[in-house]
C-alpha cells in the first residue's frame, strides 16, 4: 500500500518514502517548536513568579519569626541566586522531578493531576457545546444571508463575543441560580453544577465559531462549483453537505484551534467564578501564595495542551485538504 492513513484513496502523490520523509520532517519540526515553546514558557513563569513575591511571606503566618522564614527559604533553596535555582530546576526536571508544593510539601505533579479531571470535564463539555452550537448557527446564518434570522444571530454572536466570560457567568448565576432558582450557582457536586460553567465557557467559543463558519460558508456558497454541482443534479442540501461544508472546513478549523486556546484561558476565569475545583482555580491560588512548583507544573501542562491542540489542528488540515500531502508535479 502506498498511501498514508491520512491520504484519501486514489490520490496521486509522491512515493511512500518521500511522503514519510516529509511527515518525519514535519513531526521533528513540531517537536523542536514544542520544546522551544515549553522552555520559553517555563523560563518566563520561573522568573516572573520569583521576581514578584516571596513565598516565605505569603505562605508563612504574618508573625513568623525571621529565623523561621530564613529556614523556610533555605529549606526550599529560595535563598540561592535565581539562576542557580533555574539551573537546578532544569536538572531536576531531567530526573522527572518537577518539585514539591510549598504549601503542603506534596509532589507538585500529583497536586495538579488530581485537579485535571474536573477541568477536562468542564473544557471538553464546553468544547462540544462550542461546536454543537457554533457550526450549525454559522451554516444556518449563511443560508439565511441578509435576512432577519441571519442579522439577529450575528448580532447576538457579536454581543456574546464582546462580553467577558465573567460577566456572562455572573449574569447566568443571577438569572438561573438566584432569580429562577433552577440551577446551582457554584461547586461541582452534581451534573447540574456543570451546566452554568459549561454554557458560560462554551458560548463564547460558539459565538466566534458561528461568525467564522458563516463567512466561510458564505464564501464557499458563492463558488462556481456549488452552482455547477446543483446544475449536475444535486439538491441544495446535497451540495451544501458535499461541497460547501468540506471546502469551508479549512478556515473553520483554524478558528477552532483559536477557540481551544480561548477555552484554556477561559476555564481559569470560569472556574474562579463558579468555584469549580479544577486546575484553573488551583493556578490562581498557587500564583497568589507563590506556590512556585505547582504554578510551574500547571503552566507547563497548559502549554503542552495548547501545543497538542495545535498539532491536532495541523493534522486535521491534512484530512480536509488534499493538497496538503500532495506535492506531485502538474500533469499538464
Amino acid at each position: 500500500m502506498d498511501t498514508l492513513p491520512l491520504q484519501h484513496d486514489g490520490r496521486p502523490g509522491p512515493h511512500l518514502g518521500r511522503r514519510l520523509a516529509a511527515l518525519a520532517r514535519f513531526c521533528l519540526l513540531k517537536l523542536a517548536r514544542t520544546l522551544a515553546t515549553l522552555w520559553i514558557v517555563v523560563t518566563f513563569t520561573f522568573v516572573i513568579l520569583r521576581l514578584t513575591g516571596d513565598p516565605a511571606l505569603s505562605l508563612l503566618p504574618d508573625n513568623a519569626p525571621p529565623d523561621i522564614a530564613a529556614a523556610f527559604r533555605s529549606r526550599w533553596g529560595l535563598d540561592r541566586p535565581v539562576w542557580t535555582q533555574y539551573a537546578l530546576y532544569f536538572r531536576n526536571m531531567l530526573d522527572g522531578n518537577l518539585g514539591y508544593s510549598l504549601a503542603n510539601g506534596r509532589d507538585a505533579v500529583a497536586v495538579v493531576l488530581e485537579r485535571v479531571p474536573a477541568t477536562l470535564r468542564l473544557t471538553v463539555s464546553a468544547f462540544a457545546l462550542t461546536l454543537a452550537v457554533g457550526l450549525p448557527v454559522g451554516v444556518f446564518a449563511a443560508l439565511r444571508h441578509g435576512r432577519m434570522a441571519d442579522r439577529a444571530l450575528m448580532m447576538l454572536a457579536t454581543v456574546k463575543y464582546s462580553l467577558p466570560n465573567f460577566v456572562i457567568g455572573i449574569g447566568l448565576i443571577y438569572a438561573f441560580a438566584i432569580w429562577l432558582r433552577l440551577l446551582p450557582s457554584s461547586g461541582s457536586a452534581t451534573a447540574a453544577h456543570l451546566i452554568l460553567p459549561v454554557v458560560t465557557l462554551g458560548l463564547s467559543g460558539a459565538a466566534v465559531i458561528a461568525r467564522f463558519t458563516r463567512s466561510a460558508a458564505l464564501e464557499t456558497l458563492g463558488q462556481p462549483y456549488v452552482r455547477a454541482a446543483m446544475a449536475a443534479g444535486e439538491t441544495r442540501t446535497q451540495a451544501i453537505v458535499r461541497h460547501v461544508l468540506p471546502n469551508a472546513a479549512v478556515p473553520i478549523l483554524t478558528v477552532i484551534g483559536f477557540t481551544i486556546g480561548g477555552l484554556v484561558g477561559g476555564s481559569i476565569i470560569v472556574e474562579q467564578v463558579f468555584a469549580w475545583p479544577g486546575i484553573g482555580r488551583l493556578l490562581v491560588d498557587a500564583v497568589a501564595v507563590r506556590d512556585l512548583a505547582v504554578a510551574q507544573v500547571i503552566v507547563i501542562l497548559l502549554a503542552v495542551a495548547m501545543v497538542t491542540a495545535n498539532l491536532a489542528i495541523d493534522l486535521a488540515y491534512g484530512l480536509v485538504n488534499p493538497r496538503f500531502w500532495n506535492n506531485d508535479d502538474d500533469i499538464r
Partner: peptide
C-alpha cells in the same frame, strides 16, 4: 438538461478528483 459554465476550473470542486 445538463449545463457547463464559464470558469471550468472553478466549476469543479477543488477537493474532488
Amino acid at each position: 438538461i445538463a449545463a457547463i459554465f464559464q470558469d471550468p476550473q472553478a466549476s469543479l470542486d477543488p477537493r474532488w478528483t
